[in-house]
Design a protein around this nucleic acid. Sequence first.
RNA 1: UGCCCGAUGGUGUAAUGGUAGCACGAACGACUCUGACUCGUUCUGUCUAGGUUCGAGUCCUAGUCGGGCAGCCA
Length: 612
Amino acid sequence: MSAANTTPTPPAPAPSDFIRDIVAQHVAEQRYAKIVTRFPPEPNGYLHIGHAKSICLNFGLARENRGQCNLRFDDTNPVKEDIEYVDSITADVQWLIAGWADQCLGFKPKGAHPAAQTVDGKPDYFLPAIEPSALSAQHSAGSAAPAAEPFFASDYFEQLHNYAVELIQRGKAYVCDLTPQETDEYRGAPDKPGRESPYRQRTVAENLDLFARMRAGEFPDGARTLRAKIDMAAPNVWLRDPLLYRIRHVAHHHAGSGWCIYPLYDYAHCLSDYLEGITHSVCTLEFEVHRPLYDWVLENLGLPRPLPHQYEFAKLNLGYTIVSKRRLLQLVNEQVVTGWDDPRMPTLSGLRRRGIPASAIRAFVTGLGVTKFDSVTEVAVFENAVRNDLNAAAQRRLAVLRPVKVVLTNLPAGETIACTATNNPQDEHPTTRPLALTREVFIEADDFAEVPPPKYFRLKPGGEVRLKYACIIKLDEIVKDAAGAVTELRCTAQLDTRSGQPNADKKVKGTIHWVSATTCIDAEVRLYDRLFTVPEPAATEDFLKVVNPHSLEVVTAKLEASLACATADDRFQFERLGYFTLDPKDSQLSAPNAQPKLVFNRTITLKDTWAK
RNA sequence: UGCCCGAUGGUGUAAUGGUAGCACGAACGACUCUGACUCGUUCUGUCUAGGUUCGAGUCCUAGUCGGGCAGCCA
């Protein structure tokens, strides 16, 4: 059974925050027929843990109000975007919400564009999501996979263009010939009003003609722009005749080669929301000063349907972590990591490959709350959510990372003693598996000390320790090679201390893990540690200088034989060590005519309160 | 220094004019065939100054500190 997708969502306390309160009030007032939110990434990088907060908020809002949340690519800048990112983002979102908010995910019919309609006698465009019931109906009808895809702002270029023409006709927008440098100068400064462009008073006819010629490709990049006519003296600089369209003679990864003018965020985003019937447009704090512009565009077009509104919250900052697509791209480009999905990366792909369940990420971000306070969350909170999830989900196994050989001198070679191990003591009705104790076993190097520190519970000269699920052993003799290195520990096994035997209840202070030297298998195990050495890497002068040089250590470990059948969906706890999972990329489970190659990633260590 | 936003233990948050609570963390202890889990005890908080009020973390004013905004990025 796969632990990856069956981890039950923890009994989440009904979240409450200022945005949910607003939505709840709108629901109570019946302001909208249905709550519709959206998650609008730009396809210029992979999604990371910070996006998880936004995804869970937007999909949570939809889920809690029987609404919908559209996945929409905010792809209005073709020079920075790529189809690779469209695919990874789509997969990551679906992974994160799987089993939780699948029914809320808004897709549109493949290839669909907003349809012209009439509302209250006014022309309008609308592109609603496919009803989830329609999607599942197609499934059960046995037809091919429903032809659905995410939303793309670039699918609205035609409508956006029509709205721009409308704005020009209303005298609310004009074509400006200022160069980029001049535009900056004319804008003024936050504490100094700007100056009006000399092109501001062009006639509607002139603007219409020029805008048409912009679209027709008559002018080079940067020669002209379309600008909103608002107020060059506004204290909010985003209201100083902001740019609506710029000229870029490049093809678009989704829209093709039909355009050489592309809309800017502030113009495209609010209208994309409107076209999809979004009711609550939730974004991060840095867009707060853009909200008046969001409202201005919609209000000045006289649109017939209820308008969406923007609400802002503080994005996630995590200790010892970089949450910035630009900087993560740098880590990839400079090969500090092996790729966007390197298990040390805070990307959703990296976390997934590392073995962190989606349910743990959801529990983590849900517990954070939603506020307008710019904060930094300690990694311990995230790690706690991961351990919490995995403790309940993971199958226990025995594995030795740094082996030391132990010989049980009173056990004849070739004899095996059958033991029984518990798969997960957290289960209500735990299952078991057989384990074989043999004359030679491996134990963890850390679990033996010739000169033990105070309060050392493990194996020491003359001391006793329990081999978990087997019996108590006593260390009689330490064998070393010529160089003085320990080669073998000779012990006596107290077989009557096994479960079910007369002395089973004998207590020793320490219990350690082990594997049979004759039946164990070898595997590569990758031990990950945090990628940065300081709590706020983004705040340092050069974050590449605080990369942890020990973020990855690779060992060849000895694993109990049952692990040979592991699958990439399994989550394991190697007892007393931590949580591990098969690396889905580098493991070769069914290599023809060859031994399967097992590569395990350490997801996270167990908590260790025995400080060393 | 123009505009906008924010401030509750070490960290993240709750309390919507009426007992400052929860989680993480830390310390100690109990339990333990995982030094895990679980359980128990303890620790630390309303930025400052005024005002309104029977009563203020909450409302008002001023200040302090922090964040954001001057891309033809999103």
